[in-house]
Nucleic acid binder design. Structure first.
Lengths: 171, 171
DNA sequence: GGTTCACATGAACAGGCGTTCATCTGAAGA
DNA sequence: TCTTCAGATGAACGCCTGTTCATGTGAACC
């Protein structure tokens, strides 16, 4: 709080005129960022019809947002006092998951995706992205490109046999 | 430190007879766990010849170890004073990455895996697992099965066309 | 019994944290 | 000019942390 006040050019006491507590301050910032995050993903994927391309955009947007706000992530991961806000994080994750789950379900229904377990697939894609966020903070060597990530999640590691519609799912 | 001493049934001072600092204590535990982790993965994958099966085992072992030591992960993620040991974590990650990278490289060389960028693929697989560990702590709803994870990473989301060697890479 | 000494104890210390509140400030109204 | 009061200040408070060190303890040896 002392650092935030200093950075804002006001006193610690003034901070408590606008926010009841550190938790309220952090929650406010977090909620704003969450909305920006969700809106960016929803907006960019809206006009796309191919679920595979939607996932590519979802992944790209997620990673871009994480990079853009890396200072935020870094600060809040390093801050030892930021252990609250769990319920907000949960809601955040649930929304992200539900959205992605819809894309994957549609991909399966349309026969573009394989007959996978949609909820498992959703969690796994989200897990890659969650790992990406962690890497930003503690292991930048593990950062990868959005394209490589999309390609592997869509096509897998194993070599594809037989004819492929390469235009649909470029490697 | 007070909690550890209490749990161990000794005094705080006695803790400092055996460990110079909290950092040294934590590093000791961490190193031991790291070695166990690495040995388990190396041992279980040793006798396997198919790179795809090696990755399946790698993923399964990683997730199992994370689950077995979930209390450890939980504690150390909640503990506000455990921000050091970065260099050890780095070494840990590098070793895990190098090992996995070797498996993937061999898979590509043997024509089992597609012509992917091995270093990117490595990071992506590790990222899924890193996300899994995070989920254990902050979002258990996002936990998935090792089999689903392996299948998606090996086969991808997109439906495979043409003949497949289903026995090799079961969905 | 007396001496020694490795081991063990936990109160005390210094520093950091989020939060409070007596105090100040300066513009607006009388 | 004097009064009022919302807004701003930062020293102080209580709590928690990792760490230290004067003090205690008891087995081993002379």
């Amino acid at each position: 709080m002392r650092m935030i006040a200093g950075e804002a050019g006001i006193s610690v006491g003034a901070l408590y005129l606008y926010y009841r507590s550190k938790e309220e301050l952090c929650s406010t910032v977090f909620k704003g960022l969450f909305n920006e995050f969700r809106d960016a993903i929803a907006e960019r994927t809206r006009e796309i019809s191919d679920p595979a391309e939607q996932i590519r955009t979802y992944i790209g947007t997620y990673m871009e947002m994480a990079r853009v706000h890396r200072e935020f992530i870094y600060t809040f991961n390093k801050d030892k006092g930021f252990a609250f806000g769990v319920e907000w994080k949960q809601k955040f994750f649930v929304e992200l998951r539900r959205f992605l789950n819809g894309i994957i379900r549609r991909g399966i229904d349309e026969g573009i995706f394989a007959d996978i377990e949609e909820s498992e697939a959703t969690k796994i894609v989200l897990s890659v992205l969650r790992g990406y966020v962690v890497s930003i903070v503690i292991d930048p060597d593990n950062l990868f490109t959005a394209d490589a990530c999309t390609d592997i999640l869509l096509n897998g590691l194993v070599k594809r046999r037989g004819p492929q519609k390469g235009a649909d799912v470029p490697r």
